[in-house]
């Protein structure tokens, strides 16, 4: 089980959180301007990296805030957590 440093609450056990998938998927501002393919890409296509991954997490059983996390999918190292709207930290793969 991870120990996740919620940017609002501090370190808490993983059981309080749920992962909400890849971070930084912005909803297109004008959906009608997109082709079906582009819209489908926004809807369905997600990265599946072996390495650093930007993820959105929800402190479901805590402060209920969403935040972003930079986590390594092999070592599970959590390099950074940052609030929604803050820039993603640099990734050295």
């Amino acid at each position: 089980m991870f120990l996740i440093p919620c940017p609002y609450c501090g370190e808490r056990d993983e059981s309080e959180f749920s992962c909400a998938g890849e971070a930084h998927i912005d909803r297109p501002l004008d959906p009608d301007a997109l082709t079906d393919e582009q819209w489908g890409d926004y809807l369905f296509h997600r990265k599946n990296p072996k390495g650093w991954h930007q993820e959105q997490w929800h402190h479901t059983a805590g402060c209920r805030r969403y935040f972003n996390m930079l986590r390594h999918t092999v070592s599970y190292e959590i390099k950074a957590v940052y609030k929604i709207g803050e820039p993603a930290p640099e990734i050295e793969q």
């Binding site: 749920s18 912005d26 929800h58 209920r64 805030r65 969403y66 929604i84």
Partner: peptide, 13 residues
């Protein structure tokens, strides 16, 4: 509730 909070917090702050 999770769904609505997610949109509110991440897309429509």
């Amino acid at each position: 509730l999770n769904w609505m909070e997610r949109w509110l917090q991440t897309e429509w702050p």
